[in-house]
């Protein structure tokens, strides 16, 4: 994984920690937001808004169900931001 990808995932992780009010160590790249981190619909909207403001992109609310873990979030943002997709995504 390139440094750039890792850096972006780290930023996404910070946003998840803040939006879902969880501890950083709980948020692994594959931890499931709803099942593992207790995300509710308000948390999902918070995360969506943080991604939009943080990366300066617009994400369709229809994409909300896809925001299930860090890898998935990276993929959704990558599509609208024109980032390269990672091997794991």
């Amino acid at each position: 994984m390139s440094n750039e990808v890792q850096e972006r995932k780290a930023r996404i992780k910070d946003m998840v920690v803040s939006a879902l009010e969880v501890e950083p160590e709980e948020v692994t790249e594959t931890a499931m937001f709803v099942d593992d981190l207790g995300m509710d619909s308000l948390g999902a909207i918070d995360l969506l808004a943080a991604l939009e403001t943080g990366f300066g992109v617009e994400i369709d609310q229809a994409e909300l169900p896809r925001l299930v873990n860090i890898d998935a979030v990276y993929e959704v943002v990558a599509e609208v931001a024109g980032w390269p997709l990672t091997a794991s995504a």
């Binding site: 939006a19 308000l42 909207i45 918070d46 808004a49 943080a50 939009e52 403001t53 300066g56 617009e58």
Partner: peptide, 11 residues
């Protein structure tokens, strides 16, 4: 002041 008027923290 945000880039878009809806770039606010909904929470």
């Amino acid at each position: 002041t945000g880039e878009k008027p809806f770039f606010v923290d909904p929470s």
